[in-house]
Simulated scan of single mutants.
Amino acid sequence: MMMRTHVLETSSTEWLEVLARCRHDSHHTPGWLRASEHQDSGKAFALHATDGSHELFVPLLRRDIDGADWDANSPYGYAGPLVSDDAPASFVDAAMSAAMALLREQGCVSCFIRLNPLLNAAWHSTIGTLLEHGMTVSIDLSKSEAEHWKETTHGHRLDIAKATRAGVTVRLDETLETLPHFIRLYNGSMDRLRADGYYYFNDDYYRTLARELGDRLRLFVAEEDGVIIGGKTVTVSESAGIVQSHLIGVDTRYMHRQPSKILMHAIRQWGRERGHRCYHLGGGLGGSAEDSLFRFKRGYSPNTHVFRTQRIVVNPARYLALCGGEPSTLQDLSGFFPAYRRT
Rank of each mutant, 00 (worst) to 15 (best):
G324A: 06
L322K: 10
A317K: 14
S288F: 15
G299I: 08
Y300N: 04
E290V: 14
L281C: 08
R274C: 13
P316F: 06
A317E: 15
E290A: 11
R311Y: 08
D291F: 07
Y279I: 09
W270N: 01
F296M: 05
G283C: 09
S288I: 02
P302G: 03
G284C: 01
N303Q: 14
R257Y: 11
Q310D: 01
F296N: 00
Q310R: 11
H280F: 12
E326K: 12
S301E: 04
G271H: 03
R308G: 04
T309M: 08
V314Y: 05
D291C: 06
G299M: 09
G284K: 00
G299S: 14
C278H: 09
I262W: 04
A289C: 00
D251I: 14
R308C: 13
T304E: 15
M264H: 06
R274F: 02
I267R: 04
H276G: 02
G271Y: 01
R308P: 06
T252W: 04
I262H: 08
G299E: 08
S288H: 14
F294V: 06
E290D: 10
R308S: 13
P259I: 06
M264N: 08
R311I: 01
L320F: 13
G282H: 06
I267M: 04
R295D: 13
A321Q: 15
H276R: 07
E326A: 14
A321G: 05
K297N: 03
L263E: 01
V314H: 10
R277W: 00
S292R: 09
C278Y: 02
G283S: 07
I267T: 03
L281D: 05
Q269A: 14
E290M: 15
G282S: 06
P316G: 07
Y319F: 14
G299L: 08
R277K: 15
E290S: 12
L263V: 07
R257S: 07
G275R: 02
H265Y: 13
H265L: 03
G282T: 07
P302D: 03
